[in-house]
Design a protein around this nucleic acid. Structure first.
Length: 666
RNA sequence: GCCCAGAUAGCUCAGUCGGUAGAGCAUUUCACUCGUAAUGAAAAGGUCGAGAGUUCGAUUCUCUCUCUGGGCUCCA
């Protein structure tokens, strides 16, 4: 038999000479496909284009413009980078170099503990392009573990990976297991090791597949150098990581780089300064922000809305102090678990005080302040509570990760019977509030126990986890599980939202807690006149006001909807003669409840309009002779066309509608 | 906390191979009074992040610290 039969992706069958490869299959379809092909899927498994196909195989060609294809391009490019680095820095050890979202990285240890500089990056880039120009083949071979250990004898990280996989033996590899997942991509645990050789000198261990030759690559850019711990272990060696991005075409690469530039323009740290919303003065210390008047207006709108919704939702408002005796946090367990994350103690003559890192212990004290009846449950305590956490220096990030912040924090005490309903209605509440701020795309996560980082019995954890899971199922909100991601006191549901340019942010959290009620000896008198322990839910919708503000700034790119905008309309008199009318009109709009300012005619109109547009105001209003005569406005809406001769009353109604439309009480 | 890169006017940045600094925008003033994205002129604005060291002299070189950016780790 000299022919083999191949089934293509569309279901059709073709015959090829024995020994035919996926490249031959692609060639039989068309030359453009050959050019675009980077790998193949053979019987459901990714494979190199140039391996001989078995008879009867199902073959799909993977092209560079698919997700799988880009993955192959990126992974192959990372090999090229490793080769470039080992050429430029003889003696460099390389560890792992996977494809990641939008790109790839490779971790190195350079001889003499050298670190990469930006100049080195330029040199690496140049050498990579030489390697690509020389069109080296990626030649796959397989060998025994012992042979691989010998081949990589001078590459300790590779040897460590091989040894680890050998230690696993034939045990099935769980790609979600952090301890093996990284290595699993590099080595086949079946007892053999596959390697890809580009040159007599450069060979890397890899499961593949790869492009047939380096000539297929080239649309890449090295992005940055970073330190990264070997195997993610903080106690282990710090390797040098180079990140790059790679695409199937110049256009796709350029588009990606353009997206990065656009995302940078939305950066809340930049917009916060440009729009005069808030700042992070060095004098305050790291991770602490001050809110300027314009930012404070946005914040007040957020807070007012939040308070209104909580009031409507049956919450009771409370206030608690910013610091407390350390005994409180011993009782709660926070000192035992998070002392490093708390600001250091203040030794006073009557005890040791700490800034509060959480509001929950104080809310528990409120619950405990008197005997509680089952008739009071669910008891929902709400506070915009400001907390302080000493986040490690390297982790701070604008408003997103900050040391002093205010949570829209609530603790709900309820009976076991009420738990399901409470969580389910809470999910409705969360999504409804988030929708009011313009978010429509949500992802829920259920975080489960990490036995090493938690307190409480298995029974309690199981009960709490099931309650959350059941509520998610009942609610119909799709969710994913994050194993071991729970807080120390209980499992949680996190809600991520997608912003206007598709990035995900974790905002809301609902946490189930059997532990604090126990630690604080909380109890209520039930209908049976006996004492029972309530269950406690922790929840925040914004997460923190600061972080939510940061997300809003980036989501709206600083162009807040009318109900949130610090200035809703700016009136520009065409000339000084129109200023009195401008002021009168501004007063009328203010009387109608709007935030309006006037910029006098000291500069040209065009310049003032430009300035107002850069401030991203919802409306710019121009008033001249006609308007003074007719009690009208020129209306220049953000993102719309200029309208002339709009009666003031009409505009008042219109702005009112805009504002109302922003607060949909869904 | 770890690796790398930074910190110069309110903002964005240039510059000084060691001799105490400059632009644009913003601000103020003057002129212009203009109908939808940058009028012109002038003025003012900086102990060049902080401290120490080397030096006749440090914003510049060295060290430490603080803060920032990108990662890693962490995130109650």
């Amino acid at each position: 038999m000299s022919e083999i039969h191949i089934t293509l992706a569309d279901g059709s069958q073709r015959s090829f000479a024995r020994g035919a490869t996926a490249t031959d299959v692609a060639m039989s379809i068309g030359p453009r496909l050959v050019k675009a092909a980077v790998a193949a899927e053979v019987n459901g498994h990714e494979a190199d284009l140039n391996v001989a196909l078995p008879d009867g195989a199902s073959v799909a060609i993977i092209t560079g413009d698919s997700d799988g294809g880009r993955h192959v391009l990126r992974h192959s490019t990372s090999h090229v980078m490793a080769q470039a680095v080992t050429q430029l820095f003889p003696g460099a050890k390389f560890s792992i170099g996977p494809a990641i979202t939008d790109g790839f990285y490779y971790d190195f240890e350079l001889p003499g503990a050298k670190t990469f500089s930006d100049d080195d990056l330029v040199a690496v880039d140049k050498r990579m392009r030489e390697i690509i120009a020389s069109d080296q083949p990626f030649v796959r071979s397989e060998m025994s573990i012992d042979d691989a250990l010998e081949l990589f004898a001078d590459q300790p990280y590779k040897c460590e990976i091989i040894e680890r996989v050998r230690a696993l033996g034939d045990a099935p590899v769980d790609p979600d297991d952090d301890d093996v997942g990284v290595d699993a991509g590099e080595v086949d645990p079946g007892g053999t090791v596959s390697v890809y050789r580009n040159t007599p000198e450069f060979v890397d261990m890899c499961r593949g597949p790869h492009v047939p030759s380096t000539g297929k690559l080239g649309h890449f850019k090295l992005m940055k150098v970073a330190g990264a711990y070997w195997r993610g272990n903080e106690k282990g060696p710090m390797l040098q990581r180079i990140y790059g991005t790679a695409w199937d075409s110049r256009a796709a690469l350029d588009e990606h780089l353009h997206r990065l530039v656009e995302a940078e323009k939305r950066d809340h740290r930049r917009l916060a300064v440009e729009l005069d919303l808030l700042s992070f003065p060095n004098e305050l210390g790291g991770g602490l922000a001050v809110w300027h008047p314009k930012g404070a207006i946005v914040r007040k709108q957020m807070e007012d809305y939040s308070r209104q919704r909580h009031q409507d939702g049956g919450y009771q408002f409370v206030y608690t102090p910013h610091l407390a005796n350390g005994k409180l946090f011993e009782t709660s367990g926070h000192l035992a678990w998070y002392k490093d994350g708390m600001y250091p103690p203040m030794e006073m003559d009557n005890g040791t005080y700490y800034l509060k890192p959480m509001n929950c212990p104080m809310h528990c004290l409120i619950f405990r302040s008197r005997q509680r009846s089952y008739r009071e449950l669910p008891l929902r305590l709400f506070e915009l509570g400001t907390v302080y956490r000493y986040e490690r220096a390297g982790t701070l990030h604008g408003l997103m990760r900050i040391r002093g912040f205010t949570q829209d924090d609530s603790h709900i005490y309820c009976t076991e019977d009420q738990l399901q309903d409470e969580i389910a209605s809470l999910l409705d509440f969360v999504l409804s509030v988030l929708r009011a701020f313009g978010f429509t795309d949500f992802t829920a996560y259920l975080s489960t126990r990490d036995a090493k980082k938690s307190v409480g019995s298995d029974e309690i954890w199981d009960k709490a986890t099931e309650a959350l899971r059941e509520a998610l199922v009942r609610h119909g909100l799709p969710f994913k599980v994050k194993p071991g991601d729970a807080a120390f006191y209980g499992p949680k549901i996190d809600i991520d939202v997608k912003d206007a340019i598709g990035r995900s942010w974790q905002l809301s959290t609902i946490q189930c807690d059997f532990t604090l009620p126990e630690r604080f000896d909380l109890e209520y008198v039930g209908a049976d006149n006996a004492r029972h322990q309530p269950i406690m839910l922790h929840r925040a919708l914004f997460g923190s006001i600061e972080r939510f503000m940061g997300v809003l700034i980036e989501h709206f790119a600083g162009a807040f909807p009318a109900w949130l905008a610090p200035v809703q309309a700016r009136i520009l008199p065409v000339a000084t003669a129109h200023e009195a009318y401008a002021q009168t009109t501004a007063d009328a709009l203010r009387a109608a409840g709007f935030r309006v300012d006037v910029v006098e005619a000291n500069d040209q109109l065009g310049k003032r309009i430009r300035s107002a547009k850069l401030d991203k105001l919802p409306y710019v209003l121009v008033v001249g002779d006609d308007d003074v005569a007719n009690h009208t406005l020129g209306v220049n809406p953000r993102g719309g066309e200029v309208e002339r001769n709009v009666p003031v009353d009409d505009f008042v109604a219109r702005l009112g509608e805009d504002v109302d439309a922003g607060v949909v009480l869904a």
